[in-house]
Simulated scan of single mutants.
Amino acid sequence: MNSNSYFPNYFSIEDIFVTQEKVECKINTKLLQMGFLDPGAESDDLNPGKVINLPLWYIKELKVNNPYFAVDVPMIYKSVHKAVCEAETTHIELGKLHPFFYEYGRYLMPYDRNHIVGKIVFETMRQRVRHLLDISKNTNVDGCPERRLDSIENKLYEMGVRTNASYINWLQMKSRHICISEMVQEHSKKRRRALLSDEESSPQGPSKRIST
């Protein structure tokens, strides 16, 4: 997998950190012999209405409309909602609210009965992406990312700083050559493979190759 990608996967340390987060859940039905899930439980059973904290990795394995637990949306998304509506999310210190704000919200979206978390996550990124572009253009490569960025924003910021530095070096003729992007390289390889395949399947045999 591309090391620059932030999409979660089985081997992603960031994804492991996110799924270890605890989420408040309200008990919907009496659960026998499950009192150990609540450190302050006075009985061996969990009664309806009781609120306990469960790790996200366990919750995401349950059905959204499971009869046992009702997931409560964390307060951090409720507190950001006002800023999203007023288009003032650039002032929010997402890194302090939650270091994995976007990924945490992505996992919680299916359990949000009011369908607010998805809108908050989308609008927050939409409003802040321009700010990320601006600060990445005004910081050198050795500069430290701002503390108000979450994990994904930090990666985008660092990539923006490196890209901007490479562009400036190219304009100032400090770079000997421009590196071909991975996407272009992969496209070129696919094109060569297609040409070779056409030549081998042609009844006239290999023909003169087209230069790429």
Rank of each mutant, 00 (worst) to 15 (best):
T124S: 15
L108H: 02
V84T: 13
L94R: 03
N138L: 05
Y104H: 07
S136A: 15
A83Y: 13
M125S: 11
S151N: 10
L97Y: 10
R126V: 08
H115T: 04
D112F: 04
L97K: 07
I135G: 08
G105V: 06
T89R: 02
R128D: 10
W170V: 09
I116P: 00
S166H: 11
L156I: 15
R113F: 04
R106D: 07
Q127D: 11
G95M: 04
Q127W: 08
L156C: 09
V129E: 11
Y157F: 15
K119Y: 07
F101L: 02
C144P: 03
N138P: 03
F100L: 06
R148K: 13
I135N: 06
E86P: 01
E103N: 05
S151E: 08
K119I: 11
E153K: 04
Y102P: 00
M159G: 02
T90C: 03
M173F: 10
N138I: 02
G143W: 02
R147H: 10
H81D: 13
A83T: 07
P110N: 06
S166W: 09
H131G: 06
M173P: 00
C144D: 13
D142T: 15
H115D: 13
H91R: 11
R106Q: 09
S175K: 12
V117Y: 04
S136T: 07
G160C: 08
K137P: 00
K82Y: 12
V117C: 07
Y104F: 15
V117G: 06
R130N: 15
I168P: 00
G118C: 05
E88C: 08
K155I: 09
E93N: 14
A83L: 08
T124L: 05
L94W: 02
Q172M: 14
M109S: 07
L171P: 01
I168W: 06
S151P: 00
I116W: 03
A165G: 03
G95I: 04
H98Y: 06
F122K: 14
Y104D: 01
I135Q: 10
M173S: 14
E103L: 09
R147D: 14
H91T: 12
Y107K: 05
R126N: 14
M109W: 00
I120L: 03
M125E: 13
H81P: 00
L149P: 05
T124F: 04
I116T: 09
N154H: 04
E93G: 06
P110G: 05
N138D: 09
N114P: 00
L94A: 01
L94C: 02
V121W: 02
